[in-house]
Write a protein that binds this DNA or RNA. Structure first.
Length: 423
DNA sequence: TCTGGGGTCCTAGGACCC
DNA sequence: TCTGGGGTCCTAGGACCC
């Protein structure tokens, strides 16, 4: 049996844990730079607000409706996610952390009443973390996803829905629209509809030969999964990252090259910290800059320039040097840049690197210790970025807007909630 | 004024090799 | 006049996911 545990309106639920008065009230969490709505409570959805709505367009209406608005506090959400996963792990042999708010659970033992067991998991996660989840249980990942949708949609399931017979499977697929299947996106849904396929059951009931004709191997895999044949692999140990990106939109367009250099250096320091945390080194990176794509009246410009590292490295100083070189290639004066970023495009395992014969190993070791010391000091929530390269000057925090940020309730001692006790 | 960020996989086509 | 066949690697773009 495979379970999919999905946190309900996750970012909103995280905020509500520490602001319980917001339960049953409309709440919206915004993306970076307070740009778009990315998480909405059911009450906010009922008012007509949608995921992806630009905040400046809905701001007035949100205020008029008494919607509580938050800037994204991702360090809080990451920590809450860890707590949820820990509880899930205590119920199954293996777990795959699929995203910040979803985990696949793998059970080898059989439990008599799966629905009952599922509800026990849901209740325990709520008790341990304060986060409401929906749990789907079935024989494949794709069917577990379908089940979780039902668990979320219909309160009668009390959080857990099980698809463990062919009858239930067919019924569930009949009620599932093609665009609600995991793996069918906005481009392929219309294609399927043109074939006369509107429900998941119609897709599942196609002849296998017909499926091979119509779709590529992704579609074929999906078809098997819908028919109960599990073929999407479990990823219990997270696979090694292939790319690592840090990019941001800015509050206001940047015209100044020096300002852009600082921002890129800051992004590079972030990917450097992350690459070291995962025991990887970079073989190549890429820097991109872009003007505001919504400003159709002004001149548009986008460019991305790649830069190889002669020696694979995880050293922020080396990475910043390479990024500055790439930026030189990408930058054109005269444009207002709205967005920029850095991607490590080739990550390889640190231990798999063949050392360059001519590298100064003593110097390299000193630098490694310097980076380790810097990471150690910066790791504490209270010291966030206390140490950084002089070229940076923390634009990441300076250049983006976050006017509704909540506190680090779970990781910073000075941010913990206060409770007033009255007689 | 104000429109997110970070990933993966698949496929087609070009470069290159023998 | 006549211009192969087969393979790998890399990259860009598309589609999808959260």
């Amino acid at each position: 049996m495979i379970g999919l545990a999905d946190c309900n309106n996750f970012f909103v639920s995280c905020e509500r844990v520490f602001r319980p008065e917001l339960v049953a009230r409309p709440v919206i969490v915004l993306s970076n730079n307070d740009g778009c709505a990315v998480a909405l409570s059911n009450e906010a959805k009922a008012l007509g607000f949608k995921r992806g709505d630009p905040y400046f367009k809905i701001k007035d209406q949100a205020e008029a409706n008494g919607v509580y608005v938050f800037s994204g506090n991702h360090r809080l959400y990451e920590d809450m996610s860890g707590r949820v996963m820990t509880t899930l792990r205590s119920f199954c042999e293996e777990i795959e952390i699929y995203s910040v708010d979803e985990g696949f659970m793998f059970f080898s033992d059989s439990f008599g009443d799966w629905a009952d067991f599922g509800r026990q998991i849901v209740r325990t996660v709520m008790r341990n973390t304060g986060i409401p989840i929906s749990l789907g249980l079935s024989s494949t990942k794709t069917l577990a996803k379908v089940a979780a949708r039902f668990a979320k949609k219909y309160p009668a399931y009390r959080g857990a829905c099980v698809i463990d017979s062919d009858d239930k499977r067919r019924k569930a697929l009949e009620l599932t629209l093609i665009n609600d299947i995991w793996g069918v996106g906005r481009r392929n849904a219309p294609k399927l509809r043109r074939q006369g396929i509107t429900t998941a059951l119609q897709l599942a009931d196609l002849e296998e030969e017909r499926v091979k004709e119509l779709f590529n191997i992704v579609g074929h895999r999906m078809w098997k999964e819908l028919n109960g044949e599990s073929c999407i692999s479990r990823e219990i140990v997270p696979p090694q990252r292939k790319t690592i990106t840090c990019s941001r939109s800015f509050q206001a367009d940047i015209y100044d090259y020096e300002e852009l250099r600082k921002a890129i250096a800051d992004f590079t320091a972030t990917v450097g910290r992350r690459i070291r945390g995962q025991h990887l080194v970079a073989e190549a990176l890429e820097v991109f800059v872009a003007t505001n794509r919504f400003h159709t009246s002004g001149p548009q410009y986008f460019n991305a320039v790649a830069q190889r590292l002669s020696d694979p490295t995880d050293d922020t100083v080396e990475l910043v040097k390479a990024a500055m070189k790439a930026l030189e290639g990408a930058y054109r004066p005269g444009y207002g840049y709205k967005k920029a970023g850095v991607t490590i495009t080739r990550c390889i395992d640190r231990d798999a690197v063949t050392n360059n014969l001519f590298v100064d190993t003593e110097e390299r070791e000193r630098r490694r210790r310097l980076m380790a010391a810097m990471d150690r000091i910066n790791a504490s929530p209270a010291n966030r970025n206390a140490l950084h390269l002089a070229s940076i000057d923390s634009p990441l925090t300076r250049l983006t807007r976050r006017e509704h940020e909540s506190r680090l309730f779970t990781t910073l001692l000075s941010d913990i909630i206060e409770i007033n006790l009255r007689e």
